[in-house]
């Protein structure tokens, strides 16, 4: 169990990540606000709490790996790596610009990126390969990969799910960001995939559930996933797309939307207020 002080520190950092996501996107430019904000607590819990990761040793062979298979949500990972000092803060203003290091989707030109993802459905396979290689090399490192609920329509994810179970990869944890909204609307309307937990169990995975915005339980569930041996674990994190920015919550409009000046200012005010309220 994480202590209250640790939980409070990570909660505040999650709001810091949201503020940086909003700053990176800026005014009048499209950016993947929704799916990045839904991951803030998960990413904060991993980078600032759970993972063995030294921002000064990005190539340490025994570091824990973190990949975002739904690569458009990489903004939250950029924000965490900026916070850790792995990415220079000034890069935030150069997101998706020629000469900047922060690409629209994860790219190896950015410090701290572990893989190229963004063509959806490939990240779990890459994570599987990493976990297999690390086991072969007798490394204690763990591999964490975020997948999206809309992304689950990609067949390759289920190929990877079978492979990870076949090889009993207990160093692999998938985190399903179940925010229930995809690019063009609610996942239930666009392409409903019912009984998700049952499907994962049937594919040979251990399944854990968590409120994806509650830091204490997230830290606990990550510990549980680490403790489970003999097979991979998926954590189904129920989240709110656009969490923390009222006009972006639960709407496909901010899957990849542009904020007006007023919306930008409002978002930062709301985030700051939420951060202040952290107990």
């Amino acid at each position: 169990m994480a202590n209250a002080e640790e939980i409070q520190r990570i909660k505040k950092l999650a709001w810091d990540l949201r503020a940086d996501i909003v700053r990176m996107i800026g005014v009048g430019k499209a950016g993947h606000l929704g799916g990045s904000c839904s991951l803030a607590e998960t990413v904060a819990a991993l980078y600032f709490g759970k993972m063995h990761f030294d921002p000064k040793a990005l190539h340490d062979p025994n570091r824990d790996r973190f990949l975002v298979s739904k690569g458009h949500s990489v903004l939250v990972q950029y924000a965490a790596l900026v916070e850790l000092g792995a990415i220079p803060r000034e890069e935030m203003g150069k997101l998706k610009t020629l000469g900047g290091k922060l690409q629209g989707h994860p790219d190896m030109m950015t410090p701290g990126m572990e893989a190229v993802t963004g063509s959806l459905g490939q990240g779990l396979s890459i994570a599987t390969g990493m976990a297999l290689a690390l086991r072969l090399r007798k490394s204690p490192a763990r591999v964490y990969v975020v997948i999206g609920d809309g992304e689950l329509a990609e067949g390759q994810l289920w190929e990877a799910a079978m492979a990870a179970a076949r090889y009993k990869l207990d160093s692999l944890t998938a985190i399903l960001d179940r925010n229930r909204i995809q690019a063009t609307g609610p996942t239930k309307e666009i392409f409903d995939i019912p009984n998700l937990e049952d499907k994962w169990r049937a594919f040979g995975w251990n399944v854990l559930n968590v409120d994806g915005h509650d830091v204490g339980p997230i830290l606990d569930v990550l510990d549980k996933a680490t403790a489970i041996k003999g097979g991979p674990t998926v954590i189904v994190a129920d989240t709110v797309k656009g969490k923390g920015v009222s006009f972006a919550e639960n709407t496909a409009a901010f899957h990849n939307g542009a904020m007006t000046r007023e919306q930008y200012d409002q978002a930062l005010v709301e985030i700051e207020e939420s951060r202040r309220m952290v107990q």
């Binding site: 893989a115 190229v116 490939q122 297999l132 492979a163």
Partner: peptide, 11 residues
């Protein structure tokens, strides 16, 4: 893609 993960881990 699994092979990519292997290569990213030094194999």
């Amino acid at each position: 893609s699994t092979a990519a993960g292997f290569a990213l881990s030094g194999m």
